[in-house]
Design a protein around this nucleic acid. Structure first.
Length: 306
DNA sequence: CTTGCAATAT
DNA sequence: CATATTGCAA
């Protein structure tokens, strides 16, 4: 899995919109007002040459960076994400175009698809038999962050397992997973209120290592980030970008936070690395109604990783 | 049917 | 310890 990152093309193929999904170069992509609203500098007309050059530069940067920091990438973040990724790929299997309930994916087949599985949960076959069990979820920092963000954006009122699960939008994540984590999280926060700061309980690494959600909204809340259905659109698509970046990509700001049920669909973007952060300059993009394209490069909302 | 919780199980 | 399950009462 990880090795595939070495294939440059993969970076651009995995998860990127297909040619048909993209707005033709000839079209004006962002209305002036929208552009200013999101502080996207006025678009100078780009030619195919510009686009290609940008792509090339990006490749170069990535390659340089990749080979240069590959060593340091061998640690926690990277590995943690790798695990998460495997899980998602495993659970996702084929069907990725909506449909069906991920919970039902109880691994009906029995022949192959073993490799990933066995790595996580091997065990004897005595009782295993046809009982294909979903590997236990690992709440990686990335996942937890996602969880925290969603919980923070929902009111305490709405922060219930089902809703959280939906908003997290992580393939394979079940309501039970969230419920369990939520239960634990609540205990943690409660315990933290009583004893504001105590000995860094060597336990809750995850919770403790993370800044508490600033605005735990008391009420339903509305406005930004929520569409008329009361749902937020912020797909979690870790497989979108080359893996090595994931550990450090957080907090990279791309233009302006975009909410209001709108997602940024980028055609090409140029990435650079600054102080360990990924800076992305979207050269061509279009605003799409959120939820229409799960394959969009990414939806951006305040604080989201890119 | 979903939640929240506590007790258990893995 | 971290998660998953289960049983029950809202």
């Amino acid at each position: 899995m990880v090795e595939e990152v070495n294939d440059d093309r993969l970076l651009w193929e995995v998860g990127l919109p297909g040619a048909d999904d993209l707005t033709p170069l000839t079209l004006q992509l962002i209305p002036a007002e929208l552009a200013s609203a999101f502080r996207i500098s006025p678009e100078s007309s780009k030619t195919m040459t510009d686009v290609n050059r940008a792509s090339h530069n990006t490749f170069s940067s990535l390659q340089r960076w990749h080979s240069q920091d590959m060593a340091s990438m061998n640690n926690s973040n990277f590995k943690a994400f790798g695990e998460e990724r495997i899980r998602e790929e495993t659970l996702t299997e084929k069907d990725e175009t909506d449909g069906s309930d991920p919970r039902k994916i109880r691994r009906v087949e029995s022949g192959d698809t073993e490799e990933a599985d066995s790595a996580i949960c091997n065990e004897d076959d005595s009782s295993a038999k046809t009982l294909n069990k979903r590997p236990r979820l690992v709440w990686t920092p990335q996942l937890h962050k996602r969880f925290i963000e969603v919980v923070a954006h929902l009111g305490i009122k709405n922060a219930v397992p089902k809703t959280i699960m939906q908003l997290m939008n992580v393939e394979g994540l079940t309501r039970e997973n969230v419920a369990s984590h939520l239960q634990k999280y609540r205990l943690y926060t409660k315990r933290m209120q009583g004893q504001p700061n105590e000995g860094p309980s060597l336990s809750d690494h995850l919770f403790n290592s993370m800044p508490e959600p600033q605005s735990l909204r008391e009420f339903g809340e509305s406005g930004h980030l929520c569409n008329t259905n009361g749902h937020m659109e912020m797909p979690y698509q870790p497989q979108m970008v080359a893996m090595p970046m994931m550990g450090m990509a957080n907090r990279g700001h791309v233009g302006m936070p975009i909410g209001y049920g709108v997602a940024l669909k980028a055609e090409t973007c140029q990435l650079s690395f600054d102080h360990g952060r990924i800076m992305a300059n979207i050269m061509r993009c279009s605003l799409v109604k959120s939820g229409t394209s799960r394959k969009a490069l990414g939806s951006i909302y305040p604080g989201d990783a890119f």
